[in-house]
Design a protein around this nucleic acid. Structure first.
Length: 160
DNA sequence: GCCAACGTTGGC
DNA sequence: GCCAACGTTGGC
């Protein structure tokens, strides 16, 4: 039996660093700077071209889902790990054995309104075990099931 | 391999 | 700015 692939994702970004508006402006962005192995593994092993992504704004006044993106490349080495001038430089990374892989993310659309974390918590019974809502979770790349994705997008149409 | 110390994330 | 939660580091 083939292994089940998550197929849909949530990716966090601090809007002061890179917001959904920034993604809309550039159209496509290499998702540099992920330095957590579990998050890397999701990008390296789990993602496929065109997988849908919920674009989440973190560490801001109203944390929540702000837009939709999609996976726009196969995984490849994060170039910032080799750049001594980058905040994400990793002296242990070797060109012939890159430690950090990333994918490109492409803009799809903004949501009509931000679906706040608070609202997602309130809908926890309908969402089931959403990785984002697990206690103490800090992962910046998370799997989302198809039914969770659908439930979240349906929330967009209603007032919070 | 254990685990204390430390650094980071991210909501509040 | 606070601090809980968690991942990583490094001495032993």
């Amino acid at each position: 039996m083939p292994e089940q692939r998550a197929a849909m994702w949530l990716m966090k970004s601090e809007p002061e660093e890179f917001s959904i508006a920034d993604l809309e402006r550039v159209g496509r962005e290499p998702w540099t700077g992920v330095r957590n192995y579990q998050a890397r593994n999701f990008m390296r092993d789990g993602m496929a071209l065109d997988d849908p992504v919920l674009f989440y704004h973190s560490n801001c006044a109203t944390p929540g889902i702000a837009g939709i993106a999609r996976v726009a490349s196969a995984p490849y080495p994060d170039p910032t790990q080799f750049d001594p001038d980058s905040d994400y430089f990793d002296p242990a990374a070797r060109a012939d054995a890159p430690r950090w892989l990333l994918v490109d993310i492409a803009f799809v659309r903004r949501l009509r309104r931000v679906i706040a974390l608070e609202e997602l918590r309130a809908a926890a019974d309908r969402l089931g075990d959403l990785a984002l809502l697990r206690r103490g979770n800090r992962l910046s790349v998370l799997p989302v099931s198809a039914s969770q994705f659908k439930t979240i997008l349906a929330m967009e149409k209603h007032a919070p």
